[in-house]
Design a binder for these strands. Sequence first.
DNA 1: TTGAAAGCGGTACCAG
DNA 2: CTGGTACCGCTTTCAA
Lengths: 337, 337
Amino acid sequence: MQRSTIDDVAQAAAVSIKTVSRVLNHEPNVRESTRQRVMAAVESLNYHPSQSARSLAGSRSYVIGLLYNNPSANYMFDLQTGAMERCRQDRFQLIIHDCTRRRQDIAKHALGLIDQTHADGLVLSAPVCDEPLLLDALHQRSVPYVCIAPNQSPHHASYSFMDDRAAAREITDHLLGLGHRRIAVIVGHPDHYSAVQRLLGFKDSMKAAGVEPNMQLQKQGFYDFESGYTATRELLALATPPSAILACNDDMAAGALMAAHEANINVPNDLSVAGFDDTYISKVVWPRLTTVHQPIQEMAKVATDQLIRQLKSGAQSEPKRIDHCLVVRDSTGPAPT
Amino acid sequence: MQRSTIDDVAQAAAVSIKTVSRVLNHEPNVRESTRQRVMAAVESLNYHPSQSARSLAGSRSYVIGLLYNNPSANYMFDLQTGAMERCRQDRFQLIIHDCTRRRQDIAKHALGLIDQTHADGLVLSAPVCDEPLLLDALHQRSVPYVCIAPNQSPHHASYSFMDDRAAAREITDHLLGLGHRRIAVIVGHPDHYSAVQRLLGFKDSMKAAGVEPNMQLQKQGFYDFESGYTATRELLALATPPSAILACNDDMAAGALMAAHEANINVPNDLSVAGFDDTYISKVVWPRLTTVHQPIQEMAKVATDQLIRQLKSGAQSEPKRIDHCLVVRDSTGPAPT
DNA sequence: TTGAAAGCGGTACCAG
DNA sequence: CTGGTACCGCTTTCAA
């Protein structure tokens, strides 16, 4: 019942260990009958190659690192799920690494991780992928990496993304279409590129609709429930409060909803609230949130796919845009007359 | 800028590689001055030992596996966070593994994981830790493991847990204390031991209060939003609906809230709703949920700690109970008269 | 199409 | 207290 090694398999199949290695790595030049004999031995011995030995001897480790820095559990979950799914397909091992609370020495840290684990490459999610020092360091050591929703397109990497600006326009247009003019916006975390893009999209639409910009109706948030809650309380305390609020993610929108409920304001009759991301939370709050579906899981899967392809072929892929879509639910309605 | 090896460090410090190894592993019998020389070399070369080489050569790999099978993102997040925190402390690497959709061959699968990764031990969260075949297999291969909230106490393992039955009694008593008698319960997923314990606790209190059992008011749920929603719709359609609902976790309670809102029933004035777990969701729904705080993160941290200790000393620890506590918020109120 | 032998970067046993 | 050396289980180069 001990772990079996490549030697055991070789012996059982009456071949050399090199041949076993060939079969397992799908290398050419193995007679079909030999291949089958080896596979049978692998099966019967329940053989699983040692990752350590592989990565030590070879140039690949079949390990991919996922670096993140995001406080939202739901976001994280989707990220992981998408990346793991793709990894499993090619029997890669995913190791996840929380980069919160290390900004300065993140490059050094990531390199250390590479040294320790021999990871073949890295998947960088926003906003980790927007650290120039990190990117430089990785490039210098020629560590393959891909990005999810990066800021400016990284020089040396593939990435997946969604069009945040267009999405913001769509949801703002939805609000405008309902007759709202006094629309407040709760901006996302300044470290996230998506936050600035979404704000731009909002402004695009407002301008196109001929609405005068009003800084009183723009509040800084941080992509968390609390900041959405606080911002909304302030907005509602205004002499003339907004008739609609666009929160740049669902957590903040949930906070907005809470503030509205507490102030006894009916959503959507007296106030419309829109979110962003279509995370789990948007389906469980009341009323259910109108939001934009951000395909995080798909984005993670695609980015991981890009990385794995690159590891195999050495070539990078084109940036890949993943479609978003507007999801209209119950938190938005016609502007009060 | 290449990765540096133990040889580089040895050379730089003018000692043998064995001595470097000693220093890095905190082995005794190294002169202080030598130790410092080595550490200086490690620092300046930015040396990070190769995990692969270590696990291949030695008997330890400094890798711990976390096996889970739980659909809730928030639960997962807490689990991971707690385990990772403890791992980081002793520079262990955590690899996480989703066991959903593999029940039958889970034992074989876990063993494969051990073979591949050389993991030193496993942290098993409920309900994975209640698979007898898995536990047997691990024991037979003498793979160290610990459990989080297991069913019957596992024969050969340490574990952390909370007293679900007592917690259920507390929250039921809270409801009873508010004057409720017609209390419905939405039971958790049958695969989870916690679900049966919580139901037992509920029954304990109801019996102690002299309330006749009423199977009409007991609904089977599955620890997800949807099942809580559906169950509540059925409950509200009853000729005489309950005045309070105890949902055995927060997701189901959120579903209950949604159903109540849709039916235009005021919570908590017309209906009280209580949850369980005190996850993120309980703070963002409206009204905020009265619930029981389940210290998942702490439980994960403690279990991981037990495992690491065992790996070091070889000895198991006593099971460790983590305190829960009742969290009264806004979703429960006096029974309507 | 197959095999022999030399490492990969550490640990562990045993000398000195 | 310190160093030499035999592995750990695989991949890779080079012959056969």
